[in-house]
Design a protein around this nucleic acid. Structure first.
Lengths: 233, 233
DNA sequence: CGATTACTTGAGACCAATCAAAAGACGTGG
DNA sequence: CCACGTCTTTTGATTGGTCTCAAGTAATCG
């Protein structure tokens, strides 16, 4: 999952495609806190998330960390490069994953249909990452957090049913490392949104979107104008 | 071209693979300043850069711009998503491009060999973009500029021969929008590097790397320590 | 050569980072 | 179930890096 601009959100729906009923794939179950793979591991499987949430991270020698993306239902994780994973992948909440052996994706015995779908998935991934560039490079803290909440609500509404609630299975520092901020700034920004009446924080991992339009406006860089504030108060 | 971490720089070399001598591809020539395609255009061709430099950009409604990447020799540009380009692509310096019709890449009449290479290229692209996330989200201005110069030197040394010279065909604001900075900060940072004796600026578009190791150290977040400064002065 | 654009440099403001501490959540064992 | 220690989150005070606004200088192009 990346933070994408709204015009692209429709294509997110296509991330969620029916899981294959092929012999090549096996459903596996992973517990929260477990690890799928580490950076540098040889790639033997690709995974499509059926349920649960994953976290993909890279770490520099000096300890700085970047959360590359979160793996939400429908997302595919484990794209290889030169046969190796290039992120760590950890499980945030108990997850069911569809695992595809790499052997079924390449070589002579590869399933051409699967191969094609993998390419399509990779191309969607590239598009989503490009949007994310814009977010990391050009958006302010409040725009980042608002965007994040919008995407999260969008992605999870299909699952949880409720359209105005966002579940945050990840920690504040995960969010910070995803958005290119610090935990303090993420926390402060959430508090600001709460004090403005735009969101409510039921508990640390549950945010209710009280004013979706205002939140969306903020995510697009529209400051809180008169009518927005009027509605918010 | 993305700003990648050093361990991945080797894989960059693989970007430069021999151009295909297939009927599916045609070499085309483009003049500096011309446009290859705009965001939203229907994708009919993919391009591999043989010579010259391209610029891929996205723009928000409010005018904020992000340079997604620069297309250097060996790079492939024009990855489709839902059949559309999702960046603008402009030509910075006269370029020769290998053009592949999309029809030769997909469908029944697609060349499976080409298809496979496209997937590999897409996977490399994803890996490089992940590195770039780290740069956009977690690096300081000086680290960004130093990293940029390092990658540029690396990528261009194969072409221009000289290993310690970087040609900057793009404007300062292109660099800024690529690194998530302002033109002023880019300019200031280059001046700082020049005043420290780490680089020389022959002209606006030509930078000579005087102290490659120091520059590399800076790109990795190592401040200028004693011996670095000693060498620099 | 003049006009326009691009780049550099400076001064000040502001946003987010840092440092620090308190409040809250969580798990563990008594 | 509560007490305790630990970790996470929140909030505060301050610093600092980058942006903004503004002016000057250099490059480019007709």
């Amino acid at each position: 999952m990346y933070v994408t601009i709204p015009s692209e959100q429709l294509s997110n729906a296509q991330h969620i495609r029916p899981a294959h009923k092929r012999t090549a794939s096996i459903t596996k179950v992973f517990k929260a806190g477990s690890n799928l793979y580490y950076e540098g591991d040889k790639v033997e499987r690709l995974y499509q998330v059926q349920s649960g949430v994953l976290r993909l991270t890279r770490i520099l020698e000096d300890g700085r960390r970047q959360v590359i993306s979160f793996g939400f239902p429908g997302d595919i994780v484990g794209f290889p490069c030169n046969g190796r994973y290039h992120t760590d992948c950890d499980v945030l909440t108990d997850a069911r994953l569809q695992a595809y052996h790499l052997s079924s994706l390449e070589g002579e015995n590869g399933d051409p249909e699967l191969h094609k779908e993998l390419l399509q998935a990779a191309l969607r991934e590239i598009s989503a990452m490009q949007d994310h560039f814009m977010m990391l490079g050009r958006k302010s803290a409040i725009e980042k957090v608002a965007s994040f909440l919008c995407v999260l609500t969008e992605r999870m509404s299909a699952e949880s049913g409720s359209r105005n609630q966002a579940l945050l299975p990840m920690s504040r520092s995960d969010i910070a490392d995803f958005l290119g901020l610090t935990t303090e700034t993420v926390s402060r920004t959430l508090s600001l949104l709460r004090n403005s009446g735009i969101i409510a924080i039921n508990n640390v991992h549950t945010v209710v979107i009280l004013q979706p339009h205002v939140l969306f406006g903020l995510s697009q860089g529209h400051g809180m104008d008169q009518q927005s504030l009027a509605r918010a108060c």
